[in-house]
Design a protein around this nucleic acid. Structure first.
Lengths: 297, 297
DNA sequence: GATGATTTGGACGATTTGAACGTTTTAAAT
DNA sequence: ATTTAAAACGTTCAAATCGTCCAAATCATC
């Protein structure tokens, strides 16, 4: 019932920031972190103040769960160090059950343990799970609401991971992307944004179901180094190719166009124009690396 | 609702300040907070004294609504605070520009300052802005990508607010909801989930474009006290009424069905069955309050 | 690389905070 | 008026935080 805007102590904030208590106290006293004082002089830091500090200092919370009240009770199903496949299956099952907390725990735990990029871990679990859930839905083993609820949860998890990344630097290469009209799948393009942000790009997910003209307008507004198109479903191959060509023809030649997504596998690519065609997220990040390297060189 | 309270107990003040009762009592005894004593020795803190303390100690109330301070004028969107319209316009502009950080700052700032529930502030800014952006889009003043990007940003902001709420208690009343097939608008149903969670319900947003059968399956799985249907657009009135009736007929009579959304205003409601029909988020939360009160009684 | 300046993080006794607990007051029901 | 449950009282004490100082680490400059 009560809204929840608690205050944090320097010690808590220090843990969340992975800094020392001394430093946090000093930053408070210097004014970098707004603080209020108790009658006895203890510092209290509001969530707002903390977020402002993160923005201006371009820092990121090392342990957001320490602050965000994400102190959920431990899962009873400890999944230990089982194999990848088992973890994927566990994740898929939890997602179908709508257990957002447990799904988030698996992701965070795996990221911390493996040290792999967030986007790779997210891709590993989420892409697999959504395919699995989609298949089960086709076979009527799951209900539509379980699929939709799973999508909502995945988008939230992706955004949670995104929010713990530092802000893009002003000199970062720019990328924008989304899906074309007829393709409502939000998760793949959200994952692309997460990946690019994680490698330091200033990436913006424009959303789904965009007409070609919108991509051109956005390209004009953003002047991006790269544009990605996520393609999860295609109803009319011919119309898709026509749209795609119209897009590329309308762009300056120095803008890289990257196509990626499940629907491309079963598509003849001879009539398409692109700078890269990616079957997996890893290929896209590889290409982005090449691109930023050649740009800065 | 308790009547107007001229005095507060140390416990109430402690909750509002996010401090311990012990500390508040000590501060009273030290003179930092002026106190009146009852004949029996109980401390009574007047609103005046509390406000003086806040000014002197440069603190803000963590939970102003715990003190009768904000008596919401009505379930309308009016706040009685100056500059509302200007702030809405500023928010709308920033959202159209894709400035997620600035939008988040406005929301958080307003939440802290006004002490209003997150969901109300979010509704106040986001609903207005998305209507404005939608209108501008219809008039071709804005591009489709600006509208989609705005949706993405709003959903992220709503989820951010959601994530800082405490988890629903195990005894909380259960609610599920979403939109029916043909209605792809994600924001209103996300706002409903946020509102209900904030008032202590265990609310789950099932997502968009769900067939009636899915609602029935979900009702069977969750056994909810309430089901909400968000209705932002209707293409076929007759088919909608038919779906709605099929849903209600398939539910146990003790399950409350709440309809809400923009598209209901221009709809003849005579053929619909419902427990409540809400034109604004405030009406829905009012009804939810009634419902949980009658349940617990 | 060496050197000086700045930032960080740990350590310390002194102070503040918050939780516990048995007793007393309050307010509501009988 | 009596009873009774809930809330507030005062006290005590362990845990957390305070301010301060200083060594180690990092950065900037030559």
């Amino acid at each position: 019932m009560a809204a929840f805007q608690p205050f944090f102590s320097p010690k808590q904030v220090a843990k969340a920031l992975d800094a020392s208590e001394s430093s946090v106290k000093r930053w408070c006293d210097q004014g970098a972190i707004e603080t209020v004082r108790t009658v006895g002089g203890h510092r209290k830091i509001s969530l707002d103040a903390l977020q402002r500090f993160l923005e201006v200092s371009n820092r990121t919370l090392a342990n957001p769960q320490l602050i965000g009240l994400r102190v959920a009770p431990q899962s009873t199903t400890s999944y230990g160090v089982t194999g990848d496949k088992e973890d994927q299956i566990a994740f898929r099952k939890l997602l179908a059950d709508g257990d957002e907390l447990a799904c988030g725990r698996i992701l965070r735990d795996r990221i911390q343990r493996s040290g792999a990029p967030r986007s790779r871990v997210a891709d590993f679990f989420i892409t697999d799970a959504m395919h699995g859930i989609g298949d089960a839905w086709d076979k009527s083993e799951l209900d539509a609401y379980q699929e939709r609820r799973g999508c909502e949860i995945c988008l939230r998890l992706i955004n949670e991971l995104r929010s713990s990344l530092p802000f893009p630097s002003p000199t970062a290469p720019i990328a924008v992307g989304g899906t074309l009209s007829g393709d409502p799948y939000q998760i793949p393009t959200a994952l692309v944004e997460l990946s690019l942000r994680e490698m330091g790009w200033n990436a913006t997910n424009l959303g789904c179901e965009l007409p070609v003209e919108s991509f051109l307008r956005a390209a004009n507004d953003y002047q991006p180094t790269m544009i990605w198109i996520s393609v999860s479903t295609i109803s009319d191959e011919k119309a898709f190719a026509e749209s795609e060509n119209r897009l590329v023809d309308g762009l300056p030649t120095e803008t890289a166009v990257v196509l990626g997504g499940r629907a491309l596998a079963s598509l003849s690519t001879e009539n398409l124009q692109y700078s890269a065609l990616c079957n997996a997220l890893g290929e896209l990040t590889d290409f982005a690396h090449l691109l930023s390297a050649s740009k800065s060189a």
